[in-house]
Every structure is written in C-alpha cells, then in structure tokens.
Design a protein around this nucleic acid. Sequence first.
DNA 1: AGATAATCGAGACGGTACGTCGGGTCTTTAA
DNA 2: TTAAAGACCCGACGTACCGTCTCGATTATCT
Lengths: 198, 198, 198, 198
Amino acid sequence: MSVANSQPRRTRSGSRRDEAARLAVLHAADDLLAEHGFGALTVEAIARRAGVAKQTIYRWWPSKVEILLDTLIEDSGKRLPIPTDKPTAEGIRGYMRAFARFVTRDPAGKVLLALIAEAQHDPATAKLLHERHLGPRREQERDMLARAIDAGAISPGLGADAIDALVGAIVYRALTGSSVPYRLVDALCDDLLGARTG
Amino acid sequence: MSVANSQPRRTRSGSRRDEAARLAVLHAADDLLAEHGFGALTVEAIARRAGVAKQTIYRWWPSKVEILLDTLIEDSGKRLPIPTDKPTAEGIRGYMRAFARFVTRDPAGKVLLALIAEAQHDPATAKLLHERHLGPRREQERDMLARAIDAGAISPGLGADAIDALVGAIVYRALTGSSVPYRLVDALCDDLLGARTG
Amino acid sequence: MSVANSQPRRTRSGSRRDEAARLAVLHAADDLLAEHGFGALTVEAIARRAGVAKQTIYRWWPSKVEILLDTLIEDSGKRLPIPTDKPTAEGIRGYMRAFARFVTRDPAGKVLLALIAEAQHDPATAKLLHERHLGPRREQERDMLARAIDAGAISPGLGADAIDALVGAIVYRALTGSSVPYRLVDALCDDLLGARTG
Amino acid sequence: MSVANSQPRRTRSGSRRDEAARLAVLHAADDLLAEHGFGALTVEAIARRAGVAKQTIYRWWPSKVEILLDTLIEDSGKRLPIPTDKPTAEGIRGYMRAFARFVTRDPAGKVLLALIAEAQHDPATAKLLHERHLGPRREQERDMLARAIDAGAISPGLGADAIDALVGAIVYRALTGSSVPYRLVDALCDDLLGARTG
DNA sequence: AGATAATCGAGACGGTACGTCGGGTCTTTAA
DNA sequence: TTAAAGACCCGACGTACCGTCTCGATTATCT
C-alpha cells in the first residue's frame, strides 16, 4: 500500500460533458412544461428549444422523465428545505405552508405534480420518482415528525403517517386545481398533529 | 295537417347506435388500462381489442379520456354510492372506507387515478373530469358532511372542506402506491371530523 | 391465371390505394435523382417533395430502391421497347442505338445506372434488379439475337452472349461518364455481331 | 485483425504520421468491404475495427472513398500491372484475362466495382476515381493498344476505343454478378481486336 | 317495396414524435 | 504534432399513433 503507485488509471480521455448543454436541457424542459404543459414536453421539442441535438439528450437521460426528476430534485432541495433544527409545531406548520406554496405556485411544484401524474401512466416513472424523490423526502419528513413527537411538541393520532395525510391533502388540492390557503394548511395541522399551540 | 306539431323534426332514419360496439369499446378500454397501463391505452389498441373501427370510436367519443370517464361514472355510481340516508359519523366513515377500497382495489378506481393523472397533462381532461365526475361527486359529499354537521354528528375543524382532506389523503396514498388500511381511514376520520363516536 | 374461378372474393373494404399519391412518389423520386443525385434521394425527401406522409411510402414500397425500380420498369417498357418483328442486323443496331441514347440521355437511364450502382452496395438490391428488370430484359434481348441468328442475319462469335458484350460496353461508357456516339455503337455491332450488312 | 504490430513502439520524435494507424485503416476498410459489403463501410465502423479514432481518419482522408481509392491504387498497381514490353495480341489477351480475374475474384476488384458504383451516387467520387485511377490506367491501356496496332499485331475496328469495349464488357459482367470465363474474354478479344492470332 | 340515411368494419391518408445510427467537427488528455 | 476517446449538432432511418377521410356492406326507418 501507500507508495508512489500508479493505479490502473482510468484515463478518461475525450471531451467531458458540456455543462451548458446540460443546463439548456433542464431549463428548456422546465420552460416547456410551464408554458405549454406536459403534452408539449417531447424530447424533440426540448432539443429544439435547448438548441441541442436529440442524441445529446438521450446520451445523458434515459427518458424525459429523468430530466424532470433532475430539475425537481435540484429545485426542491433549494427552495423547499426540510427544517432540521427545532422540532416545534410551528416549524412543521411553516414547512407545510411552504410546501403548499411550492406545489401551487412554484414551477418546480408543477414538475412534481406532473411526475406524480406520469407515475400513474408508467411504472418505471413510479419507481424512479419514489427512489429519487418521494422516498428520501418522506424519510426526512417522518424524521422531522418523529423528533417533534419525541420533544412533546405534537402528538398526532396517525403517528408518523400524519405526514402523508398532510402532504396528501395538500397535493390533492393542487392536483384538482384548488387553491391551498394558509388557513386550510393551519387547520389541517391543528387537526392532524394534535399540536399544543393554537 | 300542420298544427299539432311545431318542431321542424329531423326524423332520423337509418341505423341507430350499436350497443354491442359501445360496450365492447368500454370494456376494451377498461381491460387495456388494467392489463397494460395507461401507456398502452391508445385509440388504435382499443379499436383492435374491441374489434371495432377507429371511426366508430371517434364517432361517439371525442377522445379516449371520455371513454374512461364514461366507465368511471357508470362504475363509481354503482359501486361507490354516496350514503343519503343517515347522516352519522359511522356512515361517513363507512363511505371513506369504501372509497379507500375503491381507489386501491377496484379497477374503476384505477381509472379515476389515471384520469386525475391525465388531467395534470391536459387541461381539457381536467375540465371534463371536474365537470362530469369530481364536481358532482364533491357536491354530494359536501352535502353528506353538511347534513351530518347539522345533525350534530360531527364537527370538523375544516368545515365542509374536511371532505377534500379525507379524500386527498386517501387518494395520495393510492397515487403513491401505498396501501390504505381501515385503521388509517378511521384515524383520519377521527382527527378530521371531530366525531363524537370512537 | 386462366380458369374462370369464382371464389368468394376478398371483399376488400376500406379505401383503395390513392393513385395520385403513388404517382407523386414516383415522380418525386425521379425528379430528386435527376436534380440532386442519388445522395439526395432519401425517403424523407421523397415524402416532402411528393407531399406525402412517410408512412404512405413505407406502406407500398419496402425500400426506396423499389420506387426507382417501379419507375424504371414503367419507363423502359415505354421508351425502350425491344423489337419483336424483323430479326435483322439493322433492327438490332437500331435497338442498341436506342439503348445508348436511353442510358446516356433519358432520365430513366440514370435510374438504371443508379440501380446497377446500388446493387453493388446491397445484395437485396442486386436480387431485385435482376429479378424485375435485368433478367427479363436480357431474356428478351437474347431472344431477339437468337432469332436473328436463325434467320442468318448475323453470326456473332460470342453467340447469344454478344448481347451482354454490347450492353456492357455501352453501359460502362455511361457509368464512366463518357458519351456513346452512334459511330461507336455501330462499330461495336459490326465487330460483335458478325453482321452481313455494312 | 490484419495490422502488423511487431514494429518498435510509437516513433516518438517530433510527431509524424503513424504508419501503423494508416495500415490499420486501410486493412479495416478492405476487410469490412469484403466481409459485410459497402453498406457496412462507415467511417465509424472502420475506426472501431482499426482501433483508431475517427479524427485520425478524417485527418488523413477526406472521405471513406479516398481510403478505398488508396487501397485500390496500391493493389491494382501490384496485382494487375499493364504489360509494357511486347505489344502482341497474346499480351493484350493475357492482360484482359488478368483483368477479368481481378475484377471477379480479387478483393481489390470488389473495391473497384464499389468505387464505380459510388461514383454514380456522388460526383465527387466520380471525379476522384477518374483522376486517380480510371484516367491514368486507361491512358496506359490505350498506349498498350496503340503500340500493338503500330506493330501490326492487331487492327481493331474501334481503334483505341476497343479497350473501353473490352473493359466495359468484362466490368458489366462483374457488376451484374455474372462470371467471366476465359473463353468469353478470348472471344471478345478476337472480335474486337481484329487479331491475327486465334 | 323502394328509397333514404345513418351505422359499421376496414384501412389509406398527411402528420408528429419516437429512439437509433452515422456523418463530420471539436475538445480533452496523453505521449 | 499526432493520437485515442468521445461529446457535440445534425439529419435520416423505419415505426407507432394520431385524427380525418373514403369505401362497400348492412340495417332500420319513412315514404
């Protein structure tokens, strides 16, 4: 071990991935979804809009769903962080409010809705969506809840499943084109979390 | 002559609609959705499977979505009636249980999920789904709730919106491929309806 | 064929083949070959030029080669008939002159050259070209020669193979972009047919 | 794999052309043509087979046609020399026999046929083929004939054009997949050269 | 009893997008 | 400078469905 050894170097010659092309594709997909809906989201249209060859898309993404997934993960990580510090009822309520806003107002929220939808039509999408987004996020959300329960800040009748009920109620409103006012989110939290606070 | 009748009646000679063809199409659509998923649900495949000409489908249904909508309305009317008699907490809980089963087990429930999904991809589908299914049904469900509230059987913090929260929580579980056990439905009802009964 | 058979004829419902589309494709192929060469002769370009859907081409022709073959057979049948009446040396010389003109001047002659070329690149083309054009035509040409020999009008040293030598010499000149003046054709006939006449 | 790789590794002084790569490309092209036909002869396939980068091919050859041309010129120079010594009828007949064998049996003969074919599809190929192969060779062949005529060994009715007729007749047989037996070559020579012998 | 008219299965048609292949150019890393 | 590797834009490939449109045959109703 150690020593000045040269490992069977993976030489990796050749051009590296073009970051500009990668971003152009992600943005084009996002924009097309926002502007013309999922129906207009064809690989051909994305390529056209991004000024990129179709082959470049197929080289890096197995399907257009994975493009959306990439934007979703990047955006939701940035714009909808899961609170990790104070396990209070207010903290959770704040997160749910942010989630409600995300899913109804943020373009990335539309991406989430589109992916949930597409998952109904295609099992492969369902698998991907769970593995790369829904699963990990649910994990963290349940953690958040569990810590709040431990701290005695809340005592939901559903236990950690309360998070699904909250998220589900909000997502369903979004899916059916209804608004999700704070009043409604707060009432949901009150009912489902058994919170001490008002 | 004259008189009696006033309308410039278009008498309509010729063959009337072929009921066998109509049913064949509905069943083919249902079967294809159940067996191979929404992705395989093309007009061409339906026609092939139903042993029917494409034109016959286009003559009677503006789109494949309306075929699904027809089967959904027919099936949900039969297999998931909204209780109209006794506005009790048990009645509502029973309905929600039935709904949970419908949406996770009944083929027609899959149709509902598929339509909710397709509505995200296509505004026209969204409009149709609301006008012909979601709207009317929500109306009746809210009635059911309102009567129960009036009768003092329940007192939900969300008011009539509680129905959306219940339905949403259940639908979301179904959309994400989770099961919806009775235990969960009951806990939801307890939390969201403020029911007197245990 | 023959035999007055009366089978319950294949009813053949549905629209029949669109003759206008068929002609549009044949002409588009011809024109593209003449104007921009074989390299520009893509199925997509033919479809574009003919104002026809690609699928319509693939429905009726297994490959673009068969399109060319169709035009070649039709045109060569019309514009380069094989003399069937008088088996004289002059008759044969006249045919070879016409052939030389066909292969150097007539657009359909270019089609023949292109097909001979493509046959070098693709065995399937070679097979088709022989079966549908070269074979039958060679057959008739050899007949023509045989009858002239029988009639004592010519006495070629090569026998019926003389036709290949004549055709080959002319085709090769065309393939290499050389002209084929009558003088040359006549000299070839003189040498290869052993004709009595000057 | 053909490439002889016994030579000392990489002549790293300055950066001259890599002879091994050059040969690898030529052999790969030859082999692919022989094994899978012109259709499989893509630059990408040649590069793959030769273990060479595409860019290396494009650096040294403007097109795949020039690769073939290089092999053809090299091989035909070696294996099908034009007799320069004795301008006799036998000499010419011998050459034509060798030519017939070359064009029907020798892999390099297939290259010639492929290039003649490709020349029909692409004017640039036609130009190259004439300038670098057909032209010079025809020049020498005509010389050969002229000297034989001067020597009184032959007296063709076509004059020096007789060479085109001979070559054309043979090439056409090869192009159409027919065999070219010596008997046929000899008869052609007899008829077209007006030879004293035979 | 026709004549009329709407239905049906069949399938051709002009299109759009699919996912793949090869073309020829350019960039990166190594020798 | 040359080479291997390979990403890139481009355009054609052959296929699947789309929604529209005839076609010929089959009912059912209305003179």
